[in-house]
Simulated assay, not measured.
Amino acid sequence: MTVEPRTEAGDVLTEVIMRTFRLYGAFLDAAEVMTKPVGLTAAWWQVLGAVLHEPLPVSGIAREMSLTRQSVQRIADVLVEKGLAEYLPNPAHRRAKLFRPTAAGYAAVDSLRAAQHAFTNKVSSQVDLDELKTTLKVMRQLVTAVDDVKRPAGASSG
């Protein structure tokens, strides 16, 4: 087994990964606080948020959010049971139904807006806007790079 040489860029990326884990945990904690008063969980909000603009099959949500299809399926089934979402026929695939929020699901997410904006405005006020924009750009590049590395050799990206 060949050991790859250590690089400065690799060390910096490792630190970015560790800070990302820490940040993700902090965002989940904040989301739980925001969602509890409206009867949601952070995971429910995450799944509903993935389909606010267009319905997707569960596998599409899982891919978009880098979650397992099984975990998204469990959450989707609970959301349907609670009347916050529904399954629709999928013209592109008979068995993979589309998932979307119901009016109650949209209302639940909408009721989070004030808390979400208060949180994001408070946090973002402590970081320069241009740096936030650069961070977003770099995060998108990292997602693409990780997806490229994970993709089997010869597989297309699209």
Results as ranks from 00 to 15, higher is better:
residue 29 D to A: 12
residue 90 N to G: 04
residue 103 A to W: 02
residue 27 F to H: 09
residue 39 G to H: 10
residue 106 Y to K: 05
residue 12 V to F: 14
residue 36 K to I: 03
residue 42 A to D: 11
residue 87 Y to A: 05
residue 58 V to R: 01
residue 105 G to R: 00
residue 67 L to N: 04
residue 19 R to K: 10
residue 134 T to A: 13
residue 45 W to D: 07
residue 87 Y to G: 02
residue 86 E to V: 10
residue 96 A to K: 12
residue 106 Y to W: 06
residue 93 H to E: 05
residue 98 L to V: 09
residue 46 Q to L: 14
residue 128 D to I: 08
residue 22 R to Y: 13
residue 21 F to P: 02
residue 36 K to N: 09
residue 24 Y to G: 14
residue 103 A to D: 10
residue 101 P to K: 04
residue 84 L to P: 03
residue 40 L to C: 11
residue 19 R to Y: 08
residue 18 M to Q: 14
residue 98 L to C: 08
residue 32 E to C: 04
residue 56 L to N: 01
residue 82 K to E: 14
residue 120 T to A: 08
residue 108 A to L: 01
residue 23 L to T: 15
residue 105 G to Y: 00
residue 22 R to N: 12
residue 131 E to S: 15
residue 70 Q to T: 14
residue 71 S to V: 14
residue 55 P to W: 04
residue 22 R to G: 14
residue 132 L to N: 09
residue 107 A to T: 06
residue 22 R to K: 13
residue 119 F to R: 01
residue 133 K to E: 13
residue 30 A to T: 07
residue 41 T to P: 09
residue 85 A to Q: 06
residue 58 V to Q: 00
residue 72 V to K: 01
residue 125 S to H: 10
residue 27 F to A: 13
residue 22 R to T: 15
residue 113 R to N: 12
residue 100 R to Q: 15
residue 112 L to C: 05
residue 18 M to T: 11
residue 60 G to N: 03
residue 93 H to W: 00
residue 123 V to D: 06
residue 43 A to G: 09
residue 32 E to V: 02
residue 47 V to C: 07
residue 55 P to A: 06
residue 89 P to M: 04
residue 134 T to N: 13
residue 35 T to P: 05
residue 75 I to R: 00
residue 43 A to M: 10
residue 67 L to P: 00
residue 74 R to C: 00
residue 24 Y to Q: 15
residue 91 P to L: 06
residue 131 E to K: 13
residue 128 D to N: 14
residue 74 R to L: 07
residue 114 A to C: 01
residue 65 M to G: 02
residue 53 H to T: 13
residue 126 Q to L: 12
residue 120 T to Y: 08
residue 99 F to C: 04
residue 92 A to R: 12
residue 13 L to E: 08
residue 70 Q to R: 10
residue 32 E to T: 03
residue 23 L to I: 13
residue 27 F to L: 14
residue 118 A to K: 07
residue 35 T to S: 14
residue 48 L to M: 10
residue 97 K to C: 05
residue 88 L to N: 07
residue 124 S to P: 02
residue 129 L to G: 09
residue 42 A to M: 09
residue 123 V to R: 05
residue 100 R to H: 03
residue 114 A to D: 11
residue 129 L to R: 14
residue 89 P to I: 03
